[in-house]
């Protein structure tokens, strides 16, 4: 049976094979995004001593499907003053990078769509594109709130990109490679060998910058419901709004996945290197560990949103420029020195 499938698979033209691989990533990702919205509402509900949605389907499990159908059926309103072409391109530009970046994300040693050597560079380049969707949407809407939201998020994303970039550069120095598979393999040993420990401040900075990059609470001034209605997507309705929503959640999953790969050992088992326990969990496939790590990080996103009030705009800028960037630069130097002198345990 397995051989037959293999023969069939190899008989397919390369183009079709790639299309199927893309579908195998994008469809589960879309489902994950849909259910992340439900999990978010549930988790935030629980934290606020409520029980969250529980009416559609058993325990509310069909809620995302109902939401999706509702948004699909709704009318897409294009404001009369808007630039029609850009208004439609905005959401597409927002979601495209969030999906495209998954091309280089490895699920284990071999399961990766494009195992390119410049993986990290590719990720940096592609995720930076996301801001264009927001800016174009805000500008094309021809509305003051949308424009303000777009300006805020542009400034915010650009400033946190720098701290994020520096954090990634030190991962690159520590691993000695831009290839994501090799970055994970460089963390082999035990969970103390993972890069979160030697790069601890950078791990935190990367994750916090990730929260800021995805415009999530407490850095969600781009939407700031209480100040600028909904920011860059005030004028959007129906499916175009849903695409922005999808993009935000897909970006969250992407940031969590990248943090898991670069700082938490990707698909490596957390019990690696512990004599007895390692054997017990040897049967668990690596992809399960990766998904568990992503889940934990995503939970942190939701936990943050339920806990922290929104930062004031100048506080966001202060944190990005005056705290994160100096720390990353100092730690970059320290990591460079540690690698140069082959600090035992991690870099030997």
């Amino acid at each position: 049976m397995v051989e037959q499938i293999n023969v069939l698979w190899n008989a397919l033209p390369l183009g079709l094979q790639i299309v199927f691989q893309i579908l195998a990533i994008v469809i589960p990702l879309t489902l994950a995004v849909a259910y992340l919205t439900l999990v978010e509402r549930k988790v935030i509900g629980y934290i606020q001593a409520r029980i969250g949605p529980n009416r559609v389907g058993p325990r509310g499990w069909l809620q995302p499907i109902a939401d999706g159908i509702k948004l699909l059926m709704k009318e897409i309103i294009i404001p009369s003053g808007a630039n029609r072409a850009l208004f439609i391109i905005g959401p597409i530009l927002a979601i495209a990078p969030a999906l495209v970046a998954w091309a280089v994300v490895p699920f284990n040693e071999t399961m990766v769509l494009a195992n390119i050597d410049a993986g990290l560079l590719y990720i940096l380049a592609v995720t930076s594109m996301g801001v264009y969707g927001v800016i174009i949407a805000g500008w094309a809407s021809n509305s003051k709130y949308a424009f303000l939201g777009a300006m805020r998020s542009a400034a915010q994303i650009v400033s946190y990109e720098i701290a994020m970039g520096f954090a990634l550069v030190s991962v690159l120095i520590a691993a000695g490679s831009l290839n994501l598979v090799q970055i994970v393999q460089a963390q082999q040993g035990s969970f103390l060998h993972w890069f979160w420990l030697p790069l601890l401040p950078l791990f935190l900075i990367y994750f916090i910058s990730g929260v800021a990059e995805t415009n999530r609470a407490p850095f969600d001034v781009a939407e700031g419901e209480s100040e600028i209605v909904a920011g860059f997507h005030v004028e959007y309705s129906g499916m175009t709004f849903a695409v922005f929503f999808l993009a935000e959640y897909a970006n969250m999953i992407l940031v969590a996945a990248l943090a898991a790969l670069m700082f938490l050992g990707g698909w490596l088992s957390p019990f690696q290197g512990i004599p007895a326990v390692e054997g017990w969990f040897a049967w668990v496939p690596g992809i399960v560990w990766l998904f568990l790590k992503i889940t934990v990080l995503l939970f942190l996103f939701l936990w943050f949103r339920a806990t922290f009030p929104r930062y004031r705009y100048d506080q966001i800028m202060r944190l990005g420029w005056k705290v994160f960037i100096p720390i990353t630069i100092v730690w970059l130097l320290l990591v460079g020195i540690a690698v140069l002198y082959k600090l035992p345990w991690w870099f030997d």
Partner: peptide, 11 residues
């Protein structure tokens, strides 16, 4: 907030 998550729900 983490403690409230496991607390009693008042819905």
């Amino acid at each position: 907030t983490g403690r409230y998550m496991f607390g009693k729900k008042i819905t």
